[in-house]
Structure formats: structure tokens, C-alpha cells
């Protein structure tokens, strides 16, 4: 083998080696890009690296612990009091929400639509490590051992954050809405106009393409998740429209939006398990009866 290569052009063993490694890397990239074959390998290696990443999070944790113990008890007390009041308000709103949900289900049943019942949620924390720069991704401290799955929606108290793209045993990686590869089906809350919101790679900017010039959409409109495609549950706030531009030469409007939440700030997020049930329409049941 070496003889052949030497004749081909005086290639040294080092050159051969690097060519082999390049070819191997290209093969890996191709397979990793197209398939999920390497999830297991990735998980294994991620578990190997976990200690290293864990140590990187320590400085920040230590700073937090130290400044935490130094907070005056008076600040903690007043914070406690205001949280208690907020909790009370939210509880009473929740009661109202329950009865609205019941109304909604009843009405939907009358119309014969499939309904969505309450979703299961899981609280997760951001793992404070730097992932690849210039990507919009974050790491969470819950993984496949907590039943987290690829494609799972992630939200925080204000609205949708993104989707899970990788899971390992104890961690998962989430792609934020602002990632160029991210797309979420939305609708305008005001009038139900549907569209898909795409990440732009720029922080705090999401784009809503493919809206024709006559679309009823304005600056300030709130876009909520429409639930189309079954990935994201319906009704969660996603973004507000900040710009509606029309270039004379373009068939579609250029619409830019601002996500409702600072996507990579805040320590806690919620993972959601959406559940859907198809219910038979009341009208269908009546027809069955009259046929007899």
C-alpha cells in the first residue's frame, strides 16, 4: 500500500493518515447529518465528557452560592411575601382557567372536533455550559431517564422557547426558536391567521414568510402556537409582530417578529408532553341510532 502511494507522489505516512481521517470525518458527518445512527455513540461520549462539563459549571455555581448566602434576610422575607401574593393571584386565575377549559371542551365536543386535554409538564434547569458559539442552543439537566424525547416542546413562564434535538441519559439539548433550522406553526391570536415562524440565527428575531400582501396582519399582533403538525401544543405565546414590510417586487410580505421571552435567559424551563384524544362527534352517534 505504501509503495503504491509513494509512487503516486511521495506521500508520507502522515499524509496517508490525514487523508484517511478526513475521509472518515466526512463519512461521519454525512451519516450524522442524515440519520440518527450516532445517537448512542453521542450519548456514550457525552457521559464520558460529563465530568468535564460539570466542573465548568462549578465557578458560576460557587458564585451563586456565595452571593446567595450573603443576601439579607429582609430581602428574602419581602421576596417571599410578594411571591406568596403572586401565588395566590395565580391560583385564583387557575381556577377560572379550569372552568374555561371545561367550557371549551364541551363546546368542541358539540362541534365534533378532536380535543386536547391538559398537558404533562416537567421542570428542568439550564445547564450553564457554553455550547458551540453562534448556534442558538441550550442544555438542560433532564434527559432520557426522565422520558424526555427528541422533538419535545420546551416553554417557560412567558411562552415557547424551542424544541429538544438531542437527549442523553441525564441531559438534553434544546434548539431555540431563533436557530436558523427552527420552524414553529403559529397563528395570529386576533384573527386565527395561520403561518410558520422561522428562526433567523439572529437573537430576538423570528421571521414569518409566505404571507401574501392581503394578509390581515399588523404590527403588535401576538402570534401563538397553532398546534398544526402535532409537535407544539396550541395556544402558547410565541412572538409579537414588529415589522410588516412590502417590497414592490416581492410576492410576499417581509414580517419580522420579536419572541415574547428572552430565549436563553432564565434558569428554569418546562418540558411538555402534549396529549391528544379524538372524540367521536355527538352528531355521528345520533346518525348511528337513526339508521337502525
Amino acid at each position: 500500500m505504501r509503495e503504491i502511494l509513494r509512487r503516486l507522489g511521495g506521500a508520507t505516512p502522515a499524509t496517508v493518515r490525514v487523508i484517511v481521517m478526513i475521509a472518515l470525518s466526512l463519512a461521519l458527518m454525512l451519516i450524522d447529518n442524515r440519520t440518527q445512527q450516532f445517537e448512542k455513540l453521542r450519548n456514550v461520549l457525552q457521559t464520558v465528557i460529563y465530568p468535564v462539563m460539570f466542573i465548568s459549571t462549578l465557578p458560576r455555581e460557587m458564585i451563586r452560592a456565595v452571593t446567595g448566602t450573603m443576601e439579607a434576610s429582609s430581602t428574602l422575607q419581602s421576596e417571599n411575601e410578594s411571591l406568596r401574593q403572586e401565588n395566590l393571584l395565580l391560583h385564583s386565575r387557575l381556577e377560572k382557567l379550569h372552568s374555561l377549559e371545561a367550557d371549551n371542551r364541551r363546546l368542541k365536543r358539540l362541534l365534533g372536533q378532536s380535543e386536547q386535554i391538559a398537558e404533562n409538564v416537567l421542570l428542568a434547569e439550564l445547564v450553564e455550559v457554553s455550547l458551540e458559539p453562534y448556534t442558538q442552543q441550550i442544555s438542560l439537566n433532564k434527559g432520557s431517564s426522565d422520558d424526555v424525547y427528541v422533538g419535545q416542546p420546551v416553554i417557560n413562564g412567558d411562552g415557547v422557547i424551542g424544541q429538544v434535538v438531542h437527549t442523553s441519559q441525564f441531559q438534553s439539548t434544546v434548539t431555540l426558536l431563533t436557530d436558523p433550522g427552527s420552524a414553529i406553526p403559529v397563528m395570529v391570536m386576533r384573527n386565527g391567521l395561520r403561518g410558520v415562524l422561522f428562526g433567523t440565527g439572529v437573537r430576538n428575531k423570528l421571521a414569518l414568510p409566505y404571507m401574501t400582501a392581503d394578509a390581515d396582519i399588523r404590527i403588535g399582533d401576538l402570534l401563538i402556537s397553532s398546534g398544526m403538525g402535532g409537535r407544539f401544543p396550541t395556544g402558547y405565546p410565541v412572538a409579537t409582530v414588529t415589522e410588516v414590510l412590502q417590497q414592490p417586487s416581492d410576492e410576499f410580505l417581509t414580517i419580522n417578529t420579536l419572541p415574547v421571552t428572552q430565549l436563553d435567559h432564565g434558569r428554569e424551563v418546562l418540558l411538555i408532553w402534549p396529549e391528544t384524544i379524538k372524540e367521536q362527534s355527538v352528531l355521528d352517534q345520533q346518525e348511528v341510532v337513526t339508521d337502525e
Binding site: 478526513i22 470525518s25 461521519l28 458527518m29 450524522d32 450516532f38 458551540e132 448556534t135 434535538v165
Partner: peptide, 11 residues
């Protein structure tokens, strides 16, 4: 560690 395509930095 980065979550990038396997092989990208390797290459």
C-alpha cells in the same frame, strides 16, 4: 461537547 455534527471538529 458542542453538539455539532460528529466529525466536523474532528476533521
Amino acid at each position: 461537547m458542542y453538539g455539532s455534527l460528529l466529525g466536523q471538529n474532528a476533521m
